[in-house]
Design a protein around this nucleic acid. Structure first.
Lengths: 184, 184
DNA sequence: TAAACCATGTAACCCGTTACATGATTAT
DNA sequence: ATAATCATGTAACGGGTTACATGGTTTA
């Protein structure tokens, strides 16, 4: 044994809301779900096969256009049961985080090191892009109060992501300003 | 090719501060470095071998007690060069984050669902433990202003981790309080 | 008609976890 | 004595990334 196969339950979670094809799931992961889960299609398709064999999902093939096949998966009762069990299972320990930015920063002992400045600027760009994307999603999805209350979890998670990115950027910018002006 | 072997550069980074054995590195990862990087000894030892073959590090065997061997690794010039190159290389794209708590929360559409309450309580416990640990480390390591200025990166990263955990807990607790009192 | 996108798969490889394995040293 | 810790390794396996591979459909 080596890992947990959380992807299986993530897929069940997505299917609990609507029937989806593997391709659709990939698109979800590329969207705002990507803020807390992600998977490549090369991992999704084989997993769907295994889930089908295990009786957790059932594909319904439909034809798009003239002949292109699209398999939409539907959750079985066994699938729903497995999902509920997973939801009730306690969260494991906090995963070890691996943060390249923090690692590099840790290695810089001298705030006057020009590398520090460059590193911070990179970090700002990366996270400003992400924050902008999240904010767009918020306005698109939850323009009205009503939408928020009907998708409690989704709204909560998205709002939290926005706050986290905002906070992170504030810290990065503040720390950058506190660096000595090495090149002036 | 499939991944990046960041561990190699993390190890070089640790060695840039002091000579260490594989065992020592593991201890570092179990300490506050664990907040931004982690690795098991079963990954560290083979990597050190490969790095030795690549001429990036050199072991110096010393004897502890009567016969127990301890290999302390020292960075070679080639190793230092490789580290500098890595430090200057731009950060890659933001890694896909996989957050089981957020995933589960996303699946809960109804704030009155009793699962929501339980989930938040679990999350609070996990992160309060972590925050307490980080705060202890701060007082131990950076009691004086002078310590902070001599280890700029380390202090910045640790302080940031404390802020992040504090912020996260504040959000979790606030959201928990906003849940309808389903069982009262 | 060409580019962008839809749609599904497989293969190779590396990363990381868990478990197996062994033995010495230090602290209680 | 014995338990905790020091210290170093290997093996098996699952998770995840990148690349290879193919073909249909829609849009400009």
């Amino acid at each position: 044994m080596a890992q947990k196969n959380t992807l299986r339950f993530v897929i069940l979670g997505l299917l609990s809301k609507e029937d989806l094809s593997g391709y659709d799931m990939k698109k979800r992961f590329e969207g705002e779900i990507g803020d807390f889960w992600y998977s490549n299609h090369s991992q999704i398709y084989p997993e769907l096969r295994k889930m089908e064999e295990a009786g957790l999902v059932k594909p319904q093939t439909q034809i798009v256009g003239q002949k292109m096949e699209k398999k939409s998966y539907h959750m079985t009762d066994a699938g729903r049961e497995a999902l509920l069990e997973w939801l009730q299972k306690p969260l494991g320990a906090l995963l070890p985080s691996r943060d390249e930015f923090a690692m590099k920063l840790y290695l810089i002992d001298d705030p006057a090191d020009p590398e520090a400045r460059r590193l911070f600027q990179e970090e700002i760009i990366r996270h400003e892009e992400k924050l902008a994307y999240l904010k767009t999603r918020w306005t698109v999805l939850f323009a009205s109060e009503e939408d928020q209350s009907h998708h409690f979890g989704h709204a909560a998670v998205l709002l939290h992501a926005i706050q986290r990115e905002t906070q992170h950027l504030r810290w990065v910018k503040k720390t950058l300003r506190s660096l000595p002006n090495s090149a002036e």
